[in-house]
């Protein structure tokens, strides 16, 4: 079962660049939440604050609190524990190039000491099927490396890798930006299935995609959360003029 996320007074910096300013937001459990906004507005930075990835940047700094379920991730747990519960798919695919496809998907479980072959085989197959990649790679799971796949296949491999550890929350930073329409549709189907059990946060530049998969949508602009509401409201009757301008394509 997924858990909700409650963000309050979140601020993030890259050096002196105040990238996120006073973000307050409640992301409901077992729903998909879309984040939209123009390039450079801080969407990636925001999702990276949800699994404490932002602080791995040498100049990254965060203040404020993020509750995942009941847990304050910045004070009550270590980053390692958090990241085991909060999976992430990065904006740019980053499979492990020296590992086979199989090992890439199994890497999360192996990392945590999981060695049972039969279960690993099952998990790898299930994750690759969920990520709509199984049919394309099933014949050379252990022969081909993660780097030998196409960009879109690599992204789906990364999705499978994140799914394999069965996280409670799934952060997806533009998971479909390098995919063709068919794979994109499969990923959207996946999000549809997943959201009954996981909490999903998806960053996207594709408004239709946000409208199709997410119950709630947040609009970011220049490091601030301008508006957060039910997706249909954002797209049909936004409260803020800037949101309306953005979704109607008047700027961005």
């Amino acid at each position: 079962m997924g858990v909700g996320i409650e963000v309050s007074e979140l601020n993030a910096w890259y050096g002196s660049n105040h990238t996120l300013q006073n973000i307050n937001l409640r992301i409901p459990a077992n729903h998909a939440t879309a984040l939209i906004g123009p390039s450079g507005c801080g969407k990636s930075t925001f999702v990276r604050c949800l699994n404490r990835m932002h602080e791995t940047n040498p100049v990254g700094r965060v203040t404020g609190s993020v509750l995942i379920g009941q847990l304050d991730i910045y004070t009550q747990a270590s980053p390692v524990e958090i990241r085991r519960r909060v999976g992430m798919v990065f904006q740019r695919p980053n499979p492990f190039p020296t590992m086979s496809i199989y090992d890439n998907v199994a890497s999360g479980l192996r990392l945590n000491g999981y060695r049972n072959r039969v279960v690993l085989d099952e998990v790898v197959q299930r994750s690759l099927e969920q990520a709509a990649l199984w049919e394309e790679v099933k014949d050379d799971l252990k022969k081909k490396s993660g780097a030998s796949l196409s960009g879109g296949q690599q992204q789906r491999l990364c999705i499978a890798r994140a799914l394999a550890v069965d996280p409670e929350v799934m952060l997806m930073d533009e998971p479909a930006s390098a995919l063709d329409p068919v794979s994109t549709a499969k990923i959207e189907d996946l999000i549809f299935q997943l959201k009954s059990q996981y909490t999903i946060v998806i960053v996207t530049h594709n408004m239709q995609q946000a409208a199709r998969v997410a119950e709630n949508t947040g609009f970011f602009l220049n490091g601030r959360l301008v508006e957060f509401d039910a997706t249909h409201k954002i797209f049909t009757n936004p409260r803020d003029k800037r949101t309306e301008d953005y979704i109607t394509g008047r700027f961005g």
Binding site: T56, V80, R83, N94, P95, F96, G108, L111, A162
Partner: peptide, 18 residues
């Protein structure tokens, strides 16, 4: 080694040594 590789491992819940 690209930073993205480090992040990939960290995001899976790797400790620093892992």
């Amino acid at each position: 080694v690209p930073q993205a590789q480090r992040e990939a491992a960290l995001a899976l819940g790797a400790t620093r040594w892992e």
